[in-house]
């Protein structure tokens, strides 16, 4: 069974229709890249999958592990193994990183029928996962994302991914605003987390990240639809030619 099955998904924000019939199937172990020009609906798709309430699904369905994902609350989705790495992780002054992650991990482990970790086990795990993305382990003493640099925020998202061990991870423009070192660290983290039972959906504007994380499939999204799918070579083609030729092909640009 597919891990994620998106069928004819339509969604709008306020009165504006943004997703206009998205179809996508993701199997366990696969890495899918979704590319596309600005405003094509990539991030909206990520938000709808994560459960943001600002978006209204008007048509279609999303099955996650055979269950109706759209009926689940955002936290239920997370406990079921869906993870979203945000493009702009929110800063939460006063919310301690370690406390937050301990609670999150506890909730997710409990859902999987696992006992909570002891404080020592938890701290050991934090250190281990922080090392995976080259994150300064003292960050755990700080407030969630507060005062983090752009690179630290993105590393922190992948660090959380590593800690919470999701079955499906969605990376929303994780590469935007990253210098080459941070980009490598993030990519290395993701590569180490590849597993036969885990899938990734990587949303990106540029091909750059895909030099480090090699996708099984590349999809191009234009005007709220996936208009073309292929393998990693499609990404290279896009890098070379830009998006306009695809827009032309699908008749969106004169």
């Amino acid at each position: 069974m597919a891990l994620l099955e998106i069928r004819n998904l339509h969604a709008r924000v306020e009165e504006k229709e943004i997703l206009k019939g998205v179809n996508l199937t993701v199997n366990p172990g696969e890495i899918h890249a979704i590319m596309g020009p600005n405003g094509s609906g990539k991030s909206t798709l990520a938000s709808v999958l994560a459960g943001r309430e600002d978006y209204e699904v008007t048509e279609g369905e999303v099955l996650y592990d055979g269950k109706n994902l759209l009926e689940m609350d955002p936290d239920e989705r997370a406990r079921e193994g869906l993870f979203m790495a945000f493009q702009y992780p929110v800063e939460l002054p006063g919310v301690n990183m370690a406390t937050f992650l301990r609670e999150a991990l506890k909730a997710i482990r409990e859902h999987r029928g696992l006992p909570p970790l002891s404080p020592a086990e938890f701290m050991k795990l934090l250190k281990e996962k922080a090392a995976l993305v080259g994150l300064d382990p003292s960050l755990k003493q700080r407030s969630v994302n507060e005062g983090f640099s752009g690179g630290e925020k993105k590393r922190s998202e992948i660090f959380q991914l590593a800690l919470l061990e999701p079955r499906l991870a969605i990376l929303d423009e994780t590469d935007s605003g990253l210098d080459i070192d941070a980009l490598r660290a993030v990519a290395n983290g993701v590569n180490k987390l590849r597993a036969p039972d885990r899938a990734f959906v990587i949303i990106t504007h540029y091909q750059r990240l895909l030099n480090y994380i090699v996708p099984d499939y590349v999809h191009v999204m234009v005007d709220g639809r996936i208009v073309r799918s292929g393998d990693k070579n499609l990404a290279l083609e896009l890098e070379e030619k830009g998006y306009d030729w695809i827009k032309e092909e699908v008749g969106l640009v004169a």
């Binding site: 994560a50 997370a78 979203m84 945000f86 992780p89 919310v95 609670e103 991990l105 997710i108 919470l164």
Partner: peptide, 14 residues
């Protein structure tokens, strides 16, 4: 902020 915390598995109440 609430949404962010919920995407990590915490309930609305938490």
């Amino acid at each position: 902020g609430i949404f962010y915390l919920r995407t990590r598995g915490l309930t609305l109440q938490q």
